[in-house]
Design a protein around this nucleic acid. Structure first.
Lengths: 195, 195
DNA sequence: GTCTATAGTGCGATAGAC
DNA sequence: GTCTATCGCACTATAGAC
């Protein structure tokens, strides 16, 4: 077990030895626990067992680490959106994919939605704005224009918040998935449901 | 307009001139925009038009400002919980109160639920743990023990997240209140609803 | 109750040897 | 690709004059 094990779970184009994705993985773990601002490069370096300078050899700034982590997550969302375009039931495909993604990457989702530093960086990120718009259009495709914002806000909040709820653990994920899907279909599906 | 204007909107026992609640108000505004870690005492002082030393005359540490802000919010939650105990329909009273409170203090709610510094401080805060337990018991009073955690997590996430959604503004609050109340009644009320 | 000034610390980031 | 060492800066918090 020395030269193999090249997971490449984090999207990037160049062929690297695995230290860069490992750095991102460690950084995201710390970001989700302490926030981006609350995580120092010294903490990341310590967890990796190297010095700050070694981390700065992989990433030129702290912001670059944050963005690299976010982009891996956005790429997965893009796959779901692409798949929904061609699906028989686009809304249902989108909801299933979004919920599975959120449970699978639940710590990252919380970071994307709530961390102030992440929000600031993503606000300047072109692709993020495009994905947000595509997601909103996909979620509202069965609603009339006037009453779409509130149900979408509720569904997005429920998904993004419940997957990181301290009340739940891994054993609840199947039930959580069903509960969220049921809720989302009710609020965003065709038909009249609101009072 | 020099000596009067004594709002006292923020709970504290001593009689102070209004600078202390004003400091908390300014601080909370900055905390919700930049996070607790991203807000410096210099920023708070600048917004108040004084120096850092003047702020430190009111609060001994930065943490004390954070906790003072949280306690004002927790006091309001406690009032809602107390009222629900004596209400004809305790669950409905609790839900209405919780949702109104969340919309009214929506920036604070987001801070309480998501800011890492706030979470760390509240974790050491005795009264917060008691209130969390009372809230959970109040929300699950109509559910059987086995299936309570997931619906509560979903309802709490939906309320706490939707009230700060960037998709909504003040004009949507009435519709949001109805949507959240409807959702919460469905998931937490008596009767069988899940698949 | 506010100010100026500063102590002491830890941060992001860089230089240069190996 | 990792190290030691350090720069410049911003931070929390304090001292002491007014």
């Amino acid at each position: 077990m020395a030269t193999s094990e090249q997971t490449n779970a984090v999207g990037s184009s160049s062929r690297y030895s695995g230290v860069k994705p490992r750095t991102i993985e460690v950084a995201l773990g710390l970001f989700t626990e302490y926030g981006v601002d609350g995580t120092t490069l010294q903490m990341i370096a310590d967890e990796l067992g190297v010095t700050k300078a070694a981390v700065y050899h992989q990433f030129r700034t702290k912001d670059e680490i944050v963005i690299s982590g976010a982009e891996a997550s956005l790429a997965r969302l893009e796959v779901v959106l692409d798949g929904a375009d061609d699906a028989a039931d686009p809304l249902d495909h989108l909801l299933s994919g979004l919920i599975d993604l959120s449970i699978d990457q639940r710590r990252m989702i919380n970071l994307l939605q709530n961390d102030p530093v992440m929000s600031r960086l993503l606000g300047q990120h072109e692709r993020y704005g495009q994905l947000t718009q595509r997601l909103f259009r996909g979620l509202t495709q069965n609603l009339s224009r006037g009453d779409s914002r509130v149900p979408v806000a509720i569904v997005m909040a429920a998904i993004g918040g419940a997957v990181t709820s301290p009340l739940l653990d891994e054993g609840d994920h199947d039930e959580l998935r069903r509960g969220l899907l049921d809720l989302a279909r009710r609020l965003l599906g065709p038909g009249e449901l609101r009072s």
